[in-house]
């Protein structure tokens, strides 16, 4: 047992962190929220260049995957830096298409994702009415019906009006009917289940990154903000709330890593529950400890604050995930 990232994995994380830190992702996120996808797509192509999307794509389609551990580590960084766009959906869409292993379809979609960072949106049954960032995506994958015989995968021709989420960077639209049917039958249902599992894992990792960023920014702020003649970070009420935030995030982290190793449904659901709840709690703490200035759109903190709640619910609400934890918890394995 060596339940720690390898040196190679750490080097990968460091280089991705450096790339994102230099790229001004917050500016790209704000442009994205305003409907200008150009800076975001430029950022995506650099993320693809760093090899992130290739982690979900098999070698047969010009990727290096599947490498779920590296993918989870990368998604923590994408969350920490508030990268905009349908990151989870692109990875899950790639996993879905790769799982079908139909060469024509695979070669049509996957190399562009792996090497070019072309955004994909994805909608599956049971995930609510909306697809994320369909207006920015090169492909909108839609799975209709997830029962074996009825399952159909199509490339939707369009989508309904775009609506901002509580996080304006997340843009929601109902997929259009019709479009090209590219696969059908039990293989689609199985591939959709696999894709949903990866989506849940990637969302958990992204949420963990969002929570870590919120904590780091808040720790910095309370060290500088002075009231009653002392930094507010020297007061126990503030310290203890931040300590609890760190505890929740640091106990979610190994669940995310462990889920990436096993990809078992219960493990992924446990990771999603813990990371989603920890990130949301971090957002509540960050807002409270920043006070009124935290309650503004202008402060970049808002980019992370507003993402924590939707990520908590995306690809498995806490209630769905907790139910999945117990379904997968046999007497032999708690």
């Amino acid at each position: 047992m060596r339940f720690l990232p390898t040196d190679e994995q750490l080097a990968f994380v460091r280089s991705l962190d450096a790339l994102l830190a230099a790229a001004d992702a917050p500016a790209a996120a704000r442009a994205w929220a305003g409907g200008d996808h150009a800076p975001g797509r430029e950022l995506w192509s650099r993320i693809a260049g760093a090899g992130v999307f290739a982690l979900a794509v098999p070698e047969a389609y010009e990727g290096v995957g599947p490498l779920p551990v590296e993918l989870a580590l990368a998604f923590v960084e994408l969350g920490r830096h508030a990268v905009p766009g349908p990151l989870v959906e692109t990875v899950a869409g790639a996993v879905l298409v790769a799982a079908l292993d139909e060469p024509v379809l695979g070669k049509r979609l996957l190399p562009g994702v792996a090497s070019g960072g072309l955004p994909v949106s994805l909608h599956v049954p049971g995930a609510g009415p909306y697809a994320l960032d369909a207006d920015a995506a090169d492909h909108l994958l839609v799975v209709d019906d997830d029962r074996d015989e009825g399952a159909v995968l199509r490339l939707a021709a369009g989508h309904g009006p775009v609506r901002a989420s509580g996080d304006p960077v997340r843009r929601l639209a109902v997929p259009g009917a019709g479009g090209e049917v590219v696969a059908a039958g039990p293989a689609v249902a199985a591939a959709a289940r696999r894709a949903a599992c990866w989506a849940r894992l990637a969302t958990a990792a992204q949420a963990l990154g969002v929570g870590l960023a919120l904590l780091a920014r808040t720790v910095e702020y309370v060290g500088q903000r002075t009231q009653f003649g002392a930094p507010i970070g020297s007061f126990q009420a503030v310290k203890h709330r931040l300590a609890d935030t760190l505890i929740a995030l640091e106990f979610a982290r190994p669940l995310v890593h462990g889920a990436a190793l096993t990809l078992a449904a219960a493990d992924v659901a446990a990771a999603k529950t813990a990371a989603g709840e920890a990130a949301y709690a971090a957002a509540r703490t960050a807002l409270q400890l920043h006070g009124a200035v935290g309650y503004t759109d202008e402060l970049d903190l808002s980019l992370w604050l507003r993402k924590a709640r939707p990520l908590r619910d995306a690809w498995g609400t806490p209630a769905q995930c907790r139910a999945a934890v117990l379904e997968g918890s046999s007497a032999a394995d708690a």
Binding site: G233, K239, H240, A243
Partner: peptide
């Protein structure tokens, strides 16, 4: 313990 976490892991000032 929370004081230790805040001061030694998060680097917050002593109070």
């Amino acid at each position: 313990q929370r004081d230790i976490i805040a001061e030694r892991l998060l680097g917050l000032p002593k109070g």
